[in-house]
Design a protein around this nucleic acid. Sequence first.
DNA 1: CCCCAAATAT
DNA 2: TATATTTGGG
Length: 535
Amino acid sequence: MLEVSTLRSPNKADRAAVVGDHLHHHVVGFPAPPATDEDDDTFIVDDCSLLDYIDFSCCDVPFFHADDGDILPDLEVDPTDELLAEFESSPGDEARTTAASTAESEPAAADCCGGTKGDVKEDGAADESSPLPHGKKDLDQLDEVEAETTKEFKNGDDEVLSAVTSEDSPAAAGCDAKSSAPPAAEGHSKRKASSSPTTTTTGKNSHGKRKVKVDWTPELHRRFVQAVEQLGIDKAVPSRILELMGIECLTRHNIASHLQKYRSHRKHLMAREAEAVSWTQKRQMYTAAAAQAAARGEPGKDAAGVAPWVVPTIGFPPPPHVAAAMPAPPAAPPFCRPLHVWGHPTPGGAEATPPQVPVPPPLLPVWPRHLAPPPQLQLPLPAAWAHHRHPAPVVDPAYWQQPQYYNVARKWGLQPVTPGTPCLQPQMPPPALLQRFPAPPVVPGMVPHPMYIPIPPQPLPPPSPGNKLAALQLQLDAHPSKESIDAAIGDVLVKPWLPLPLGLKPPSLDSVMSELHKQGIPKVPPAAAVSGGAG
DNA sequence: CCCCAAATAT
DNA sequence: TATATTTGGG
């Protein structure tokens, strides 16, 4: 059994307790509970079932359900937004839902886990009994759970959000989390010890399993990010973050881990981006060169030859007008799930401001491959592209400020990238646009993806004799490393656009496009048929 | 206490 | 298998 310790917050009174599943639906968030001070320490979740059912994976998706349709609301969210409940399940099933709670703007008070889904650790026992037929629920801890409203309805289940860990750390405890199990036994219970078979977490329904790990739900993550941002670099250390977050359910370790990952993730992104950018640039340069060559009437350079090289800009955001002219992205995924947790919370407003131009983003956010987007969850999301206009990209200052990353950031010029923001669901381009989007030809060696137009490496048009640049580029691009490709692809998937490294000066897309246009070259290779687009 | 790297679980 | 999270060490 796992125990979760709850943290108590000194100040906060709030905490929601979690409820056991037994309740079927009662969620229980107690807004501020008068509760139990006594108890603060631990909650037990008994039910096993709850957790089980909860599909954490889905959790990520919480947004979708949003009533408002928002997706990743920012931290500040209104209650409404915050609800992240995910209900993926349908009523019929077990339903698992999770709701998020509201968050408050207040960091401190935050609710912690607003989003967390319950995790709990388990141990065993508890009762698995969980008799609940279907319900499972979690609870949330949120302090204020106002949001509940929605949640409750939803499936009737409840959800919870708490994260929990079992750490021993008392300190941590406090939260509302749910915890469960009896403390006893193992005492420390680190999950690890048990190897118990059960484990599970994710959803399965069976009853016995629960999540052991802290579930970093988007909500939680948001909070995390927020905290980090608020703290700013220096202070963005686990302990501070924890404090800021106010979530007592989490332990420093949890935070630290998450932080680590967060950084790591960023680092990777940066690296990939850099690569992608460079690759893209080369490509673009080549394109430009080719276009010029074509313009000169060089043989072999016709629209066809050139067009293939026109790729959606991966490296940088196309200017609005260009974007408009560009081919619409193939089909947008049914919905996007936030980059798990790694993204930044979009601070308010960003999403709030819909892009003036409903231009479909050339690039789409990533949806974890392992997750199949629930069909039902298709929500209209605000265009992610709003990013272009974001006055100030929301970046996690803290992140970048960290020495190691700061340097990197400078190096790569990533300042404004907002890593996780992307999870907005791109709007589905109008049919007309979709048609314009030729299906990417299947190119051996290239990974087919609806998101980008594959550019066959091999079929490069021979450089014209006089075109050194083209030749050079050809060489460079002819055999892109797998990584490069991957990076490019990943890039596309991950973010709509990337800032170029400071040192690089990409040819303007406009110039390229206009060049092509002059030549009568279609923006997109006519050939391809639209792939399933939506797929 | 924090960061990094590895191990493990999901 | 890949990814996420946790655990352990410096």
